[in-house]
Design a binder for these strands. Structure first.
Length: 466
RNA sequence: GGCGCGGUAGCCAAGUGGUAAGGCCGAGCUCUGCAAAAGCUCUAUGCGCCGGUUCAAUUCCGGCCCGCGCCUCCA
C-alpha cells in the first residue's frame, strides 16, 4: 500500500509518488529559526517529518529520497537577538544551529540531505525577486523595499482559502507603511540602521540594500536544491498562512509552474491543554525535559502518541507513559532477538504489515503503535493459531522501530552527580550487607526524587514516578 | 466576527452503521534482604447533551453545550 498523506491544498488523502523520471521523491520541510532553542512543539513537526522521511526511504529506497530542511538565520527575530545580545548575527545563529542539531540527534532524527541557510542563498533570493519585479508581480516601495503584489496572482489564497475568510482588522498590519495593499508582503526589506545593525546585502536591481523577507528564502532554496516543482512541501499548520500561501505565490509567478504537488501540515502541540508560552510556565525545550530526568527518546515517543494532524496535548505524565512503553518495547525486542524464541519460517514477514498500513494511512502513528503492541502480545504468547516469530519477523520488528525512529536501546538519562554518588555509596553498603545504611541511603534518594533499581550484579537509576 | 479542529475509561489515545485498538496508571498474583524491575491476569453495557434517520449509531443528519487553534512574519 502506497503512502497516503493528507494534502492541505486539495484537502484529501493523496498517494505519495515521485513525479520525475529519475524516481527521486523530493520534499522540503520548513525548518527552525535559529535565534533561541527550539521547543518541543517545534520538534513535533520535525519528528513527524522524520518519520515521513523514513517511510519514504523504506518505500522508494534510501537513495530515492531527497529531503531538504532550511535554517532561517536572518529575519526579524534573529536580528532582534543580535541587538539584544550585541553580538554578530553569525555567532548567534551558529550557537542555536548547533543546539538544534544536538537536539535533533538526541531525538534520533535523520539529518536532511541538505540544510540550506537563508544567508547562504541571498543571491538566489535576489534573482527571484528581480524576476518577479520584471514580470510585474512585485514592486519597489518608497523606502527601497520590495513587495509582492497579491493582486497579480489570481491563485492567491488557494491554500488558506483566504478569500473565504473575513480578516479581523488589527493594528499589526498598519506597519504596512509603504505597501500598495495591506495584504502585500515583503520580498525584500530595506536596511534600517537603527534596527538592523550591520546585517545587510546589496538588494535587487532598483531596490535598496537590505535583507530578504522571510517567505522568499524557502522559495529560492527549494528551487535551487530541488527544482521548480517539488513532490511535497511540509511544515507546521501555523505556516499554512501566510508563509506557505506566499511561497506558492512567489514561486509560481517566478517559475510559471506548479510549486509543490502536495502540501502537508502537522498540527500544534498543546501543553496542559493550551498553547505553550513562557508566561504560562508550560514552555519546554528538550533540555528542560532532560534535566527533569526524561530521556529524549521518551520525548520522541510522546510526540508520536497523537495523530500528527490533530492537536496533541502534552503533559509531563505523557513522558512517564512514554518511558514505560519504551521499556516494554525494548523487552519485546530483546525476547525476539533471542534465537531460542524464534522458529524457521519464510524469508519475508507480513505480520507487521498492519503497522505499516497504519503508518501509510496518513501517518497514523497512534494506531501504528497500537498495532505494534498487539503484535507483541501475539508474538510473545503464541496461541495454537498464531505462529511463533521467525527470523523475518525479528527483522520486521527492527524495520518498524526504525520507521518510528525509536531507538529502544539507548535510554540514556541525565543523572545529577550528587545522585550518582549516593547510589554508589548505597551499592557499596549493600554489597557489605550493611542493610541499615543501604536503606537510609535509599530514603535519601527517594527524597531527592530518584529510585534505585537493584539487580543481582548492577543497579539502575530512574526518576521517581509521581 | 471569520476559518478550522476536537469532546471516547483515572490519564493519553485509535477506531467503526452491527455492538469499543493500544499505551500509562491502578488492583491481584508470581518473584524478591528492602524497594523495585520483570512476567501473568483484570479494569468503558459505554464513546459531551438532546432529538432524528435506521432492523441497528459512539460511528450518518439536525440542534445545543464545552474546549482548543488560526486570522500577516509562531513548527
Amino acid at each position: 500500500m502506497p503512502i497516503h498523506l493528507f494534502d492541505s491544498l486539495e484537502r484529501k488523502l493523496k498517494p505519495l509518488a515521485p513525479s520525475r523520471a529519475d524516481g527521486v521523491f523530493r520534499f522540503y520541510n520548513c525548518g527552525p529559526t535559529v535565534y533561541a532553542p527550539a521547543h518541543i512543539g517545534n520538534f513535533r513537526t520535525f519528528v513527524v517529518n522524520d518519520v515521513l522521511r523514513r517511510l519514504l526511504e523504506l518505500e522508494f529506497g534510501a537513495d530515492k529520497v531527497k529531503h531538504v530542511r532550511n535554517l532561517t538565520d536572518v529575519d526579524d527575530r534573529t536580528i532582534g537577538q543580535t541587538q539584544k545580545e550585541k553580538r554578530p548575527l553569525a555567532e548567534i545563529t551558529k550557537k542555536w544551529t548547533d543546539k538544534f542539531h544536538a537536539d535533533c540527534d538526541a531525538l534520533n532524527c535523520l539529518r536532511p540531505h541538505a540544510e540550506p541557510t537563508a544567508t547562504g542563498y541571498i543571491k538566489e533570493q535576489v534573482n527571484m525577486i528581480e524576476v518577479l519585479m520584471e514580470k510585474g508581480n512585485a514592486y519597489r516601495a518608497a523606502d527601497g523595499s520590495v513587495y509582492f503584489k497579491i493582486e497579480s496572482f489570481p491563485g492567491y489564497g488557494g491554500l488558506s482559502r483566504i478569500k473565504e475568510r473575513e480578516l479581523k482588522i488589527t493594528n499589526t498590519v498598519a506597519d504596512a507603511d509603504h505597501k500598495d495593499s495591506v495584504s502585500d508582503f515583503a520580498l525584500w526589506k530595506a536596511y534600517k540602521p537603527e534596527e538592523d545593525g550591520d546585517v545587510k546585502w546589496p538588494g535587487p536591481r532598483g531596490a535598496s540594500e537590505g535583507r530578504p523577507g522571510w517567505h522568499i528564502e524557502c522559495s529560492a532554496m527549494s528551487k535551487s536544491l530541488l527544482g521548480d516543482t517539488i513532490d511535497l512541501h511540509s511544515g507546521g499548520v501555523d505556516l499554512l498562512f501566510p508563509h506557505h500561501e506566499n511561497e506558492i505565490a512567489q514561486s509560481e509567478c517566478c517559475n510559471g509552474t506548479t510549486f509543490a504537488h502536495h502540501w502537508y501540515h502537522s498540527e500544534h502541540l498543546l501543553v496542559d491543554g493550551t498553547t505553550m508560552s513562557k508566561s504560562k510556565g508550560n514552555y519546554y525545550t528538550l533540555t528542560d525535559l532532560v534535566e527533569k530526568g526524561y530521556s529524549p527518546m521518551a520525548v520522541r515517543y510522546a510526540l508520536l502518541m497523537g495523530h500528527p494532524r490533530k492537536q496533541l496535548n502534552f503533559m509531563l505524565d505523557s513522558l512517564h507513559s512514554a518511558e514505560s512503553a519504551l521499556k516494554t518495547l525494548k523487552s519485546f525486542k530483546d525476547v525476539l532477538a533471542d534465537p531460542r524464541n524464534t522458529v524457521d519460517g519464510p524469508e519475508a514477514s507480513s505480520r507487521f504489515d498492519r503497522v505499516f498500513a497504519a503508518l501509510h494511512d496518513d501517518m497514523n502513528t497512534p494506531a501504528a503503535l497500537g498495532a505494534l503492541f498487539e503484535l507483541r502480545q501475539e508474538f510473545l504468547y503464541p496461541t495454537a493459531t498464531s505462529a511463533k516469530p521467525t527470523k523475518a519477523d525479528v527483522a520486521a520488528l527492527d524495520r518498524a522501530l526504525w520507521a518510528f525512529g525509536l531507538d529502544v536501546e539507548g535510554t540514556v538519562l541525565f543523572v545529577p552527580a550528587a545522585i550518582t554518588a549516593l547510589a554508589a555509596q548505597r551499592w557499596a553498603a549493600k554489597q557489605a550487607k550493611d542493610f541499615a545504611t543501604a536503606d537510609a541511603l535509599r530514603k535519601e534518594l527517594t527524597a531527592a526524587g530518584w529510585s534505585m533499581l537493584d539487580s543481582k550484579t548492577d543497579y539502575k537509576l530512574e526518576p521517581l514516578k509521581k
